[in-house]
Amino acid sequence: NITNLCPFDEVFNATRFASVYAWNRKRISNCVADYSVLYNLAPFFTFKCYGVSPTKLNDLCFTNVYADSFVIRGDEVRQIAPGQTGNIADYNYKLPDDFTGCVIAWNSNKLDSKVSGNYNYLYRLFRKSNLKPFERDISTEIYQAGNKPCNGVAGFNCYFPLRSYSFRPTYGVGHQPYRVVVLSFELLHAPATVCGPKKST
């Protein structure tokens, strides 16, 4: 009989979030998941669920729940959905087409922007091929755009693959930082360890 609440607040209220290319994953298990708490945590810009209804979450049980978190800019949030393409979905964080879970995003301009520009958040701009779903690539190998090998040196047709967002508070919403948490629900042929409040007794 599990009584402890799932530590969603640790994920959502973390002081620092990860850069999207090096997104963070927390496995959540053996706890009571009260998803209604999430609705009250922040004024969400996005709370979209796929393959599951957000209002039914509190009635369900899962084997595992994974919470992935990272920062992107406002106009990239739409890429965090099944079947999307674009720089983020292709080279940084890719959801599977049959994704079961929820994408939660909110504006973090007050936390993640600086007047002089916050350069701490990076994204991958160049990659030889698209990522597979939930693949994480943290390599910093020089990207070869031409025929000549780069031998690890940046220059003509040889690019450092990561680029930094420079978040400034005066930017338009599309270029402001957004914190994203992706909850993916895993149903294996194994005992369910993460249940809503109704199912945990």
Results as ranks from 00 to 15, higher is better:
Arg25Asn: 03
Phe160Gln: 13
Ala22Asp: 12
Glu10Phe: 07
Ile28Cys: 07
Phe12Tyr: 06
Leu125Tyr: 10
Phe47Asn: 07
Asn107Gly: 05
Leu183Asn: 01
Tyr93His: 02
Asn87Gln: 11
Leu162Pro: 00
Asn107Glu: 03
Gln84Ala: 15
Ser36Asn: 13
Ala145His: 02
Asn30Pro: 09
Ser166Leu: 04
Ile72Phe: 00
Cys158Trp: 03
Ala192Cys: 11
Lys198Tyr: 13
Tyr93Glu: 00
Asn58His: 13
Gly155Cys: 04
His189Phe: 09
Asp9Ala: 14
Ser200Leu: 14
Lys128Tyr: 10
Arg124Ser: 00
Asn151Gln: 12
Thr55Gln: 15
Val173Phe: 13
Ser36Trp: 07
Asn118Arg: 04
Lys128Ala: 12
Lys199Gly: 15
Gln84Met: 14
Asn24Gln: 14
Lys94Gly: 03
Val65Gln: 05
Asn130Tyr: 10
Cys102Gln: 04
Phe99Lys: 02
Phe70His: 01
Leu122His: 10
Ile72Glu: 00
Pro149Ala: 13
Arg27Pro: 09
Asn13Pro: 04
Ala81Met: 06
Phe8Thr: 05
Phe17Ala: 04
Arg16Lys: 15
Ala18Gln: 10
Glu186Ala: 08
Asp34His: 09
Ser164Pro: 13
Asn40Gln: 12
His175Asp: 02
Pro161Tyr: 04
Val20Ser: 04
Gln144Asp: 07
Phe47Pro: 08
Asn109Pro: 01
Leu95Arg: 03
Ala42Arg: 15
Asp98Asn: 15
Gly83His: 12
Gly117Ala: 04
Lys198Glu: 13
Asn4Phe: 08
Lys94Cys: 04
Val52His: 09
Asn157Met: 02
Pro177Asp: 00
Asn147Leu: 06
Val194Pro: 12
Ala105Pro: 01
Thr170Arg: 05
Cys6Met: 06
Phe167Ala: 00
Thr15Ile: 09
Val52Met: 11
Val65Trp: 06
Leu5Tyr: 14
Asn120Gln: 14
Thr201Ile: 14
Val11Ser: 05
Arg27Glu: 11
Lys48Val: 09
Arg163Ile: 15
Lys199Phe: 14
Ser69Gly: 03
Tyr165Met: 02
Ser164Phe: 06
Gly51Asp: 06
Val20Leu: 02
Gly86Pro: 02
Asn120His: 13
Ala67Asp: 00
Cys150Gln: 00
Asn4Asp: 13
Tyr123Val: 15
Val180Cys: 09
Phe156Lys: 06
Val103Met: 05
Ile88Thr: 05
Asn130Cys: 11
Ser200Val: 15
Tyr171Pro: 00
Tyr91Asp: 02
Tyr50Thr: 04
Ser36Cys: 06
Pro161Gln: 04
Phe156Leu: 07
Lys110Tyr: 08
Ser53Leu: 10
